[in-house]
């Protein structure tokens, strides 16, 4: 479920990034890379788990599924926080800089 949530997040973010091109002022690329990297890593995790559990991997208990969904959504929230922090630090539009360094008349 975590893998599924991350893959959806990666696909949606990439579609938004593509639509906004060539404007990269929102640094959406960072979010795309993060989600795709995590998705690939969780894919390996899933393959190893499948090798261990077999077909049972596809029929998880409801409680496990809910926990994994909760984890997946938390992961997305964490990625969004990391992205917002990077966006504010890099400040490509100079919004923060303009706010902090207001010229005195």
């Amino acid at each position: 479920m975590t893998l599924l949530v991350t893959v959806f997040a990666a696909a949606i973010t990439t579609a938004i990034w593509y639509k906004r091109q060539p404007d990269s002022s929102m640094k959406l690329g960072v979010l795309c890379w993060m989600f795709w990297g995590a998705s690939l890593m969780w894919l390996i995790d899933a393959i190893f788990e499948y090798a261990e559990l077999g077909a049972a991997y596809f029929t998880p208990a409801l409680k496990d599924m809910a926990n994994d969904l909760f984890l997946g959504l938390s992961v997305v929230a964490l990625a969004l926080i990391i992205w917002i922090v990077i966006l504010l630090i890099r400040d490509p539009k100079g919004v923060l800089k303009a706010k902090l360094l207001k010229k005195k008349e």
Binding site: V30, W33, M34, W36, A38, L40, M41
Partner: peptide, 8 residues
Amino acid sequence: MLWGGSAL
């Protein structure tokens, strides 16, 4: 990809 993936 590596930093993002390993952080998550």
